[in-house]
Computed example of a mutant assay.
Amino acid sequence: MGRGDLSDEQWSVPESLLPAAGVSRRSGRRRRLINGVRWRVRTGVPWRDLLHEYRPWQTVYRHRPHRGRPHQMAGRPRDP
């Protein structure tokens, strides 16, 4: 576990919000993805400089939280 990664106790919170993984190995993969997103946000490095221990940067990038487009936020109607 790297500096800033979620501890077992901290991981139990987001893990309980995720759909069941089905296979025990998948939980570890999810944890690495979340730790990778958190590391990237904390350090501010470009996605391509993500440490390999968090999985390939493309995989972590695809699983990052999306902010959405302005017309999708707060129920605003889409501009024509």
Score class of each variant (00 low, 15 high):
residue 75 G to N: 06
residue 41 V to E: 04
residue 66 H to F: 10
residue 60 V to A: 03
residue 10 Q to F: 09
residue 63 H to M: 13
residue 74 A to N: 14
residue 9 E to W: 07
residue 10 Q to R: 11
residue 13 V to C: 01
residue 11 W to H: 08
residue 28 G to A: 12
residue 67 R to L: 12
residue 55 R to V: 10
residue 55 R to Y: 05
residue 76 R to G: 04
residue 57 W to Q: 03
residue 38 R to F: 06
residue 48 R to T: 14
residue 33 L to A: 04
residue 29 R to P: 00
residue 51 L to F: 15
residue 5 D to M: 14
residue 39 W to T: 12
residue 74 A to E: 11
residue 6 L to C: 06
residue 53 E to G: 05
residue 25 R to H: 13
residue 66 H to E: 10
residue 46 P to N: 02
residue 40 R to G: 00
residue 80 P to T: 07
residue 79 D to G: 02
residue 61 Y to Q: 15
residue 61 Y to D: 06
residue 38 R to M: 12
residue 19 P to M: 02
residue 51 L to P: 15
residue 79 D to F: 03
residue 39 W to M: 08
residue 34 I to N: 00
residue 73 M to Y: 00
residue 13 V to W: 06
residue 43 T to R: 13
residue 10 Q to K: 11
residue 49 D to L: 13
residue 49 D to Y: 07
residue 39 W to I: 08
residue 75 G to I: 10
residue 30 R to L: 12
residue 1 M to K: 07
residue 52 H to D: 15
residue 55 R to K: 03
residue 14 P to N: 02
residue 5 D to G: 09
residue 39 W to H: 10
residue 51 L to T: 14
residue 80 P to K: 12
residue 58 Q to E: 15
residue 72 Q to K: 03
residue 41 V to T: 14
residue 40 R to L: 15
residue 42 R to F: 10
residue 50 L to N: 03
residue 61 Y to V: 02
residue 75 G to W: 00
residue 79 D to C: 02
residue 44 G to N: 00
residue 42 R to A: 14
residue 50 L to Y: 09
residue 47 W to K: 03
residue 74 A to I: 01
residue 51 L to C: 07
residue 21 A to R: 08
residue 25 R to I: 14
residue 23 V to P: 00
residue 60 V to Y: 00
residue 79 D to H: 05
residue 29 R to Q: 12
residue 7 S to Y: 05
residue 11 W to N: 06
residue 25 R to S: 09
residue 58 Q to A: 05
residue 64 R to Y: 07
residue 74 A to S: 04
residue 53 E to W: 02
residue 40 R to H: 09
residue 24 S to A: 05
residue 14 P to H: 07
residue 62 R to H: 06
residue 63 H to S: 11
residue 4 G to T: 05
residue 57 W to N: 10
residue 44 G to S: 02
residue 71 H to N: 09
residue 62 R to I: 02
residue 34 I to C: 04
residue 25 R to V: 07
residue 74 A to Q: 04
residue 19 P to R: 04
residue 37 V to Q: 07
residue 9 E to L: 09
residue 15 E to T: 09
residue 18 L to M: 10
residue 26 R to L: 15
residue 5 D to A: 12
residue 69 R to D: 10
residue 46 P to Q: 08
residue 36 G to V: 05
residue 17 L to Q: 06
residue 9 E to F: 03
residue 25 R to Y: 08
residue 77 P to F: 06
residue 38 R to N: 03
